[in-house]
Design a protein around this nucleic acid. Sequence first.
DNA 1: AGACCCAACTTACACGTGTAACCGAAATCG
DNA 2: CGATTTCGGTTACACGTGTAAGTTGGGTCT
Lengths: 329, 329
Amino acid sequence: MPDTKRVTSADVARLAGVSRATVSYVLNDTPRQTISAGTRTRVLDAAARLGYSPSAAARTLRTGRSDVVLCLLPDWPIGPEVGSLLGNLSAALTRHGLTLVVHPGSRGERPVAELWKAITPAAVISYTEFTDAEAAAMRSAGVAVVVAVPRRGRGRELAVPQELVGRRQAEHLVAAGHTRLGYAYPDDQRVRFFAEPRLAGVRAACAARRLPTPVGLTVPLDPSAAADCVRRWQSTEVTAVCAYNDEVALAVLAGARTAGLSVPGDLAVIGVDDIPPARLAAPPLTTVTTDQAVVGAHLAATVVAAMSGRSAPELPAADIVRVVPRDSA
Amino acid sequence: MPDTKRVTSADVARLAGVSRATVSYVLNDTPRQTISAGTRTRVLDAAARLGYSPSAAARTLRTGRSDVVLCLLPDWPIGPEVGSLLGNLSAALTRHGLTLVVHPGSRGERPVAELWKAITPAAVISYTEFTDAEAAAMRSAGVAVVVAVPRRGRGRELAVPQELVGRRQAEHLVAAGHTRLGYAYPDDQRVRFFAEPRLAGVRAACAARRLPTPVGLTVPLDPSAAADCVRRWQSTEVTAVCAYNDEVALAVLAGARTAGLSVPGDLAVIGVDDIPPARLAAPPLTTVTTDQAVVGAHLAATVVAAMSGRSAPELPAADIVRVVPRDSA
DNA sequence: AGACCCAACTTACACGTGTAACCGAAATCG
DNA sequence: CGATTTCGGTTACACGTGTAAGTTGGGTCT
């Protein structure tokens, strides 16, 4: 490795025969600063020839803010929906001149506090609450903080209303004539933050229709264990279950198969996410899907709003959560 | 937003009644620099009281390198394996004092060139080849470049040898007595870089045993379309198929079901990845899995090796790819 | 007692950039 | 024709940090 020295704007200036400031003005299209066409092309040419790229560190240091948005991901099992959301979010932020980077949850080895220091992002998106001290520290460093988690205490949620997801599931089953519902709770403690509000949504939908409260069971991703759950549901006269997500729903399907029950005849099942295996299951799985493109765009809009101190826009939640009807319910 | 000014090391120095350099020495535990216990605690105390956190930009600017490793992800459908790999990679890098951030492929809207400038990473991990110009630019900026993609031309691969994955699939089927194999190719053009070498591995295994070359078909993630593929295979006397991954394998399963064939009686199927739905399928899906923890650790080791100019360590490939036997093959 | 060393600091500079302030010349205006 | 604006730049400073190169004063060795 010859370890060539970094090419700086001074090198460009020297080659173009102008001052370093002129280079900066040309490259940043600074308004209210006039540059003759001749020198402009000379500077651009020199920059291209040298392969100049400005130092992000120096720029960030000088201007005080970068165009990087940092997304802190908890230690979740990351599936296609999260991947899709991140892709859409990245695209949406790019449209606003921002750049998304994601930090996967590293088994809590290092506190998040260390990370945002190391990046100096313009904004941080987090799916976990910060301590007040952390939030204050970030604000004082000029970082716009966006917490995309359903806040228990506060009135409105920033993220996709997970209650609504649960409600849609229940509504679909009730519309099909079911009156006694079950809820298939995930075995993974890490996703509790998602599971709780979804279950709450199912409960709310049942309560609104004066139906009995759904009987919840924790369903492991294992056919025989799931079969036990299915038998328990049958013994309590449950005819349809809402699953936390498609994987749990597939477990319920497998459990029903093992227990010798037919779906949806003996038991109807509805999932969440519409992962690719859902439509390949036997029977094809009815599920609830969220339009991640809209969610990504909304999250991006929330970020830019937070950066400019304005308040977040509304998310047209009702329009983006819909049932994908297949054969399992 | 009161927009409090950033607290700098000068503030800490003032409060502790020492010079700014002393603060830096204390906070960085600079070797060969002696600090009395009294001032050390005074500095530490002042820093804690003010909530001081050093400016990453300034530090990066001064030292020339940051401790951030940037991973560029192409526009792939991101599943649990990728998520698991990233989590393990992040943990492994953290163990080396590095921080991982991931950039999800944003539909090619912005060239990657823009991004590494904006982050000033110590290293970049990419799953796509760079142009020579890009690589040169990054090297000249002091970025260690690691390309984790099977290089066609070169002899050895950096990433997990995908050929080996295919070989393992074929070996398992052959060991079960199958002689005429099929290959279920994914419908998604974006994963071609993974699919090609896996298919090559299957071909190689067949050739080594003097078996006919596998008959490849592109299998969409749709039951009836997959059923067509299954019938084609049956008409060419294929008794077992290797699928590109578990999703495609599930499609084959669904196709066989639709076509009225039994698995593994009429057709054996083996997938790749061991995603959670695999064991929930009917029948439970035999699959090939890769130990992502080892891969993550190896990738991290490769990165630190590249940063210090050394050559990459060997990956014990043979030990980490293994078959998960279930009922489908 | 003088030479010397070492602990414990401080002073001073460099990293690469953005931008406010300044400046000469040419053009415009009253 | 003098005053003033506009054009096309340059000089100079600040951002916050790491660290090499001094600078003390007190102790040690010869």
